Amino acid sequence: MIDHAHDLASVQEATDRLLTAAAALDNAAGARPSRLPGWTVGHVLAHLARNADALANVLDGRPMYVSAEARDADIERDAPRALDAQLDDLRASHAGFRARAAEPADWTRSVELRNGVTDIASRVPFRRWAEVELHHVDLGIGYELEDLPAEFGEREIDFLADRFSGHREVPPTGLRGDGGQVWTTGGGAPGGPIAVEGSTADLLGWLAGRRDGSALLVKGGTLPALPPL
């Protein structure tokens, strides 16, 4: 069962962790390449701030972004800012998201995200948690997939495995973690079943497009090529 209050507390912890790490950088760090192609560290920080605003919009029943073009333009506008400005913005946008989430609400209601995707409101805090954790890794400042909280790692694999379940480009695939956890995904493409085994970090990295899967053990075929998230 989704516990939005628990996830909101986890968002706070993850945000505090990211802000503490980013505060140790110098202003020149914002212009350095991040681990996301075409994005600097400043782009990642700007995206995190604007995503907090966007998810507050979702909770308020408004469109997540005015448009895809406006989303991209806002990130490009904000990316070159000095580090202090980036972190102040991230703190403020996070506070706005938390304030909106603290208001009385029906957490079982349906909400709309980008590209017509719908979900229940209680899952929005977990989506924000994922943004903060994965983009902290994307900054390339010493926080790795292996450093992610164990609970988050397993739940994000659950989320991504479900996202690709039945996908027409992914054959039936079974996943096994190094702690014995099992997941299934794919199933919409011919072939398989394929068995994939590895650590939580490597499985999550592959599913989230952060690692190429070369560290995974694959049986019954080749490692499926996953579509973009």
Rank of each mutant, 00 (worst) to 15 (best):
E154V: 15
A85R: 04
E151H: 03
R35S: 05
L175K: 00
L36F: 04
D212V: 06
G179Y: 01
L226M: 14
L25V: 04
P63M: 08
A208Q: 08
R81C: 08
M64I: 05
R91P: 12
L217H: 13
L87I: 11
A21D: 03
D53M: 00
R35W: 02
L18M: 09
E133R: 07
A52H: 13
R77P: 08
D138V: 09
D138R: 06
R62F: 04
P80W: 00
G174Q: 14
G166C: 07
A56I: 06
H43C: 01
T15H: 04
P172C: 11
M1S: 15
A9I: 07
W183K: 01
A9G: 09
V124G: 10
D138L: 11
P33V: 03
S110P: 02
R71E: 02
H47Q: 07
A99Y: 06
A189Q: 02
D3P: 12
G142E: 10
A102P: 09
R71Q: 05
P149I: 09
D106E: 12
Y65A: 11
D26V: 05
A56W: 08
D162A: 15
L48H: 05
A101N: 03
G30R: 00
A105C: 02
M1P: 13
N57Q: 14
P33N: 03
G221D: 00
S34L: 03
D88I: 09
H94I: 01
S214M: 06
R176C: 09
H136Q: 10
D84Q: 13
R155T: 15
L204E: 00
D212I: 06
G187E: 00
N27P: 05
G192H: 13
I194G: 13
V117S: 03
A102N: 06
L203G: 15
L90F: 15
M1K: 14
T108G: 11
A92V: 05
L223Q: 01
G220D: 04
V196Y: 10
I141F: 05
R62E: 08
R109A: 10
R17W: 07
H6T: 15
P63R: 12
E144V: 08
H167D: 14
L19A: 09
D138S: 12
A95G: 13
V170P: 11
A24S: 08
H94K: 02
M64Y: 09
E103N: 08
G30H: 00
H135A: 01
R109N: 03
A14W: 06
G180R: 12
R17H: 14
R91M: 10
A225N: 10
A208C: 07
G166W: 08
A73N: 13
A121R: 09
M64C: 10
I120C: 14
Y143C: 07
G30P: 01
I75F: 12
G42D: 07
A102K: 09
E154W: 00
H135G: 02
G61S: 03
S34C: 03
P172H: 13
D60Q: 13
